[in-house]
């Protein structure tokens, strides 16, 4: 790693001020950023540690919506949402491995927007709102492509507000070495309709499969999507699977999620 300084603010205001420095980066749980620094793929002058800010931690539940602080770890989400939003807890409990889940944070995952990460799928499928130090951003506007979000430089994800659906399920087909999603599909059924978010599959990162949403809103069954096909254009093709393979998996995993919901 190149040398840098670490600042440890205890308030969001102090963190925002510290991030105004050129080449400063926010550090959440570090489970992506620290390996990136080791590879010298990032060279910040300063890291601003967010995990010491009490306001960014914990989960509040008002019955219809969960508000999860940005530095809440995957392990805490898995443990504390098991009763309120089981599909979210299940998703969180299968990210990385136990030691990673004790460090990695939901805000860090959403800010990074890895195209194969799990949290973007639950956020987009649930119609979540990403809350920052400056504003609230609807998930539909927030995810803007592979590793791209609506966040401005120095903007911090302070919380995510996640509506709890009537039914939901996440199906992840893991890439067997990395255990990231080769394809992951989150299906969420609300009174007003069904939302389907796909991660791992697209060069554009997480996206909604709107065709399936319409079919499932009319008839919430795996049979309802049997006649649909997924366009392989712009899907990821790599050594682990072709674009056509991923397209096939999107439909299969969507069907499984609907059945399991």
């Amino acid at each position: 790693m190149y040398a840098f300084d670490i600042e440890r603010p205890t308030s969001v205001a102090d963190a925002v001020a510290a991030l105004k420095d050129e080449d400063a980066l926010a550090l959440g749980g570090g489970q992506t950023l620290i390996p990136t620094l080791k590879q010298r793929l990032a060279a910040p002058s300063k890291l601003v540690l967010l995990t010491g800010i009490a306001d960014l931690q914990g989960i509040a539940n008002d019955g219809d919506t969960l508000r999860i602080g940005g530095t809440t770890t995957h392990a805490t989400v898995a443990a504390d949402t098991a009763g309120s939003y089981p599909a979210l807890a299940d998703l969180a409990s299968h990210i990385g491995d136990p030691a990673v889940r004790n460090r990695g944070t939901i805000g860090g995952s959403l800010a990074n927007n890895d195209p194969s990460a799990c949290y973007p799928a639950v956020a987009l499928a649930s119609g979540a709102t990403i809350i920052t130090n400056a504003r609230a951003i609807a998930a539909d506007d927030y995810f803007q492509g592979m590793f791209e979000t609506a966040l401005d430089d120095g903007e911090i994800v302070t919380a995510v507000s996640i509506p709890v659906p009537e039914k939901a399920n996440y199906q992840k087909f893991v890439q067997p070495a990395s255990r990231f999603a080769l394809v992951g599909v989150f299906v969420a059924k609300f009174a007003g309709g069904v939302r389907v978010a796909v991660t791992g599959a697209s060069n554009e990162g997480v996206y909604r499969w709107t065709q399936a949403e319409a079919a499932l809103t009319a008839d919430f069954s795996a049979a309802a999507i049997a006649g649909l096909s997924v366009d392989a254009d712009n899907l990821i093709a790599d050594v682990h699977g072709s674009a056509e393979y991923r397209a096939h998996l999107v439909k299969v995993m969507t069907g499984r999620a609907v059945t399991a919901a």
Partner: peptide, 14 residues
């Protein structure tokens, strides 16, 4: 809590 000590800075354990 179990953590990977190669993926955490020493100052975070202060």
């Amino acid at each position: 809590q179990a953590v990977k000590s190669c993926t955490m800075f020493a100052v975070e354990a202060d």
